[in-house]
Design a protein around this nucleic acid. Structure first.
Lengths: 223, 223, 223, 223
DNA sequence: TATGAATGAGGTTTCATTCAT
DNA sequence: AATGAATGAAACCTCATTCAT
């Protein structure tokens, strides 16, 4: 019942603004849904409650999404997009393999403390339709390839100690993924700090170290 | 398999053997269920299919378990038991903090490639009743404490480079937990090998290293 | 069958009428359910049959009630309301204790020949949830208190022969309650007639009688 | 399997005693069942719990009864038998219609405070199979006829004020039946006392009274 | 675009009952 | 006579989804 009349000046704006309104609502649904899905788990969460939290009714959701599993898919899509943005930036910035790996760990670790980021590891691809599932699996594979790629690169350019890239990627990514499971927003560390810590410590063992002088004093990252 | 002749000698054996039969069946249910739950996810898996795979009918399951969620709980309980057995052995063997941590990583990583081990990280505690949930959460907390304990010990005894035990434990355990998500039985590496690899690489960065001479030949991490 | 034309005049009516429609349906469910419950007994009656009789499907019932036992509770609530209405009217009208008791017997006895009235004595409180059960028990207690109150009043004001109010109330109410068990709608007596008969005969023995002259002709109870 | 040899002296006794044992067990089942049925209601009570209370297992019950509804029927049968015993005694003793009615009220009222007596009014004939149901209905009808008969007799012999025997019987029996619903064993009045009170008060209004002198002092049963 | 109402499908659970031992 | 195990039937309930308005 919005009765303000902008229609006079431009027959086009209302359409635009209407579309924008629509997109905003769609996003609102998504943000609410992802929270609920994370809170209660996809299966226990009901569309009814999603709707309730948005002060609308269940069928209204179907104006924005084709069904529950499409909402789920979009959560994943958002997460994947965030990751891709990060990797694009990292690739663009260049640097050694180790550099990139560290940046990636930092970024990805941070994302894991995010609703849409956590979606990547807290939801179950088997809840998706075949088509969507394939897309998501492709996205996850791509992330894995990114990690492995940086490691391989690093080994090649000498910044990373030789190792099995596949296993090492699993190790690092697994460690970061797990953040999505234990991170609580009320924790003491910010997502960035966690990403940073993990990035350093995880890659510390991998860095090719310059010959050290006999230790005299302890000189360490933390503390 | 038990071919010892029963009834003749003792009226007591049949009772024993009956109880054994019961326990065996209970275990069979559990093994079938955990596989199905892992395959399809707890919510998609139906008791009907569990029963079908066992060539019995659904209500027969209720002879062994009080309900679906009790089956789920027992999967967890099995996993926790396995972990506890491992830690007990590790503690009994003694050694430096680093030693223990490595052994733990090896054992725990190996378990993650196991059905009941994977239960610890693939299922959702919110699917349990309040009572069972508390037990499981306590168990998980205990595992976390074990990891942290070994790290703290190691720092104290000088075998581990000082670090934040909490974050480090999260890192290591997370990395190992992730095995439960990606490991497929058809993979090329045995669970033990994976546990071994992870154990070494994860703890390598933590080990306090003797002063090194300038590198001449490659003699890296993997020892 | 509301035939007043709605939508033209007011955008508000449709809402009203919709709400009314909803209430009417809820009531229809209740009337159908109470009949079925009385016919077959609460446990033998299935929601499926309730739904069938209403030409809807079972889950549709859940739009109006939270579950089978809530329907049961509402039957009771309807019955209790009817009784309360009666007692309110009786209290408002005033009169001697005996007067009130007679009116109450008449009204209550009549209700027992009613679906919702019979609910009060034909259903089992143990089929209710704890909360609802408490409400119903309170309601029953209140009815009992009403009977006893009238008797006590009557004794006090001299209209009723002294007696044990508790036992007498049990006696009278029990006698009336039983109507709910044997009354069949096809019987020869109307509910009102039954109420009347019971009211007179039950209270006749209680009435303080004026000294009689030696009986010469039969002039008894039935008046 | 029983190899103790009492057989020598009498091949007949063991049979007798075995049958007696069987009957005793059957009765024990019945007593336990009727209690449970009254406590929880027929449908909520499970054979499992009946068996548990008897320290046997569910299938063992089937040695004594053909099924749950047969147990229910036997409860009724016990109740009916008790009533019939009473009426037989009353009839044998003779007396006026009023006398018999009073005795009957006393006896029947007392029975209602009994497990098997309460069975007559607390259970639902629709839970029985058709055959058993017919038997029970016949029994209830017979009880009704007995009440009506005494009343008719009393009217005929002048001991009871003329009235509608059908309604009066309903009234009296209903009042007594209700005892089965409210009587709790821990109450202050014994079953006999209740029967007595009800018998007197219920029939008091019916008795043809001798001309009374103007009341001077209150002289009443209770208080 | 949003809603109330209704549906279909399916799942867990309970229990009386039977059967082989 | 008694048991453990298993079954069949059915009931309640939940929820995503659709449809008419």
């Amino acid at each position: 019942m919005d009765t303000r009349a902008p229609a006079a000046e431009s027959p086009w704006l209302p359409f635009e603004s209407r579309r924008r309104a629509r997109d905003e609502k769609r996003e609102a649904v998504l943000r609410t849904a992802v929270q609920l899905f994370l809170e209660q788990g996809y299966h226990r969460a009901t569309l009814n409650e999603v709707a309730e939290r948005l002060n609308i009714t269940k069928p209204a959701l179907y104006n924005y999404f084709r069904g529950k599993d499409e909402i789920l898919f979009e959560c994943w899509a958002m997460g994947l997009e965030l990751v891709e943005t990060s990797t694009a930036a990292i690739n663009a910035a260049g640097g050694s393999g180790l550099d990139k790996l560290r940046k990636m760990a930092r970024a990805y670790g941070g994302l894991m403390a995010t609703d849409f980021g956590a979606s990547l590891v807290r939801f179950d691809v088997r809840d998706l339709g075949a088509k969507h599932r394939d897309i998501v699996l492709a996205g996850k594979k791509s992330i894995d390839r990114t990690f492995r790629g940086y490691i391989t690169e690093g080994i090649a350019d000498g910044s990373i100690t030789p190792c099995d890239p596949k296993m090492t990627a699993f190790m690092i990514a697994g460690s970061l993924n797990w953040i999505g499971h234990w991170y609580k927003r009320d924790g003491t560390m910010t997502p960035e700090a966690i990403g940073e810590t993990f990035a350093m410590q995880l890659t510390d063992g991998l860095a090719v170290r310059p010959p050290r002088k006999p230790r005299t004093t302890k000189q360490h990252t933390k503390r």
